[in-house]
Amino acid sequence: MGDAKPRRPDPAALEPEAAREAFYDYVYLRDNPNGIFREYWYHSSGCHQWLVVTRDLRTHAIAGVEPASCAGVEPAS
């Protein structure tokens, strides 16, 4: 389900112009590393858990799995 690195910006902490820039990055810009990657997985046909999986994009070797809720950041507002 995509890169788990981007963090949703906090609009309350930013001027409108800066907020738009930050959200543009958040919505559209993504890295494409040739190697280890942390990404979201979603167990749609089971427990509906969102996970963060650490995977090597070259070999598909999985180095770790954790619930996404442990990786999130609570915005200020």
């Binding site: 979603y42 749609s44 858990q49 969102w50 809720s69 609570e74």
Partner: peptide, 18 residues
Amino acid sequence: AAKVMQHLEFCHQVLWPK
């Protein structure tokens, strides 16, 4: 229906787990 459910769960588990 399924897409919204997935979206709500993303918001709950990833964005605002607290």
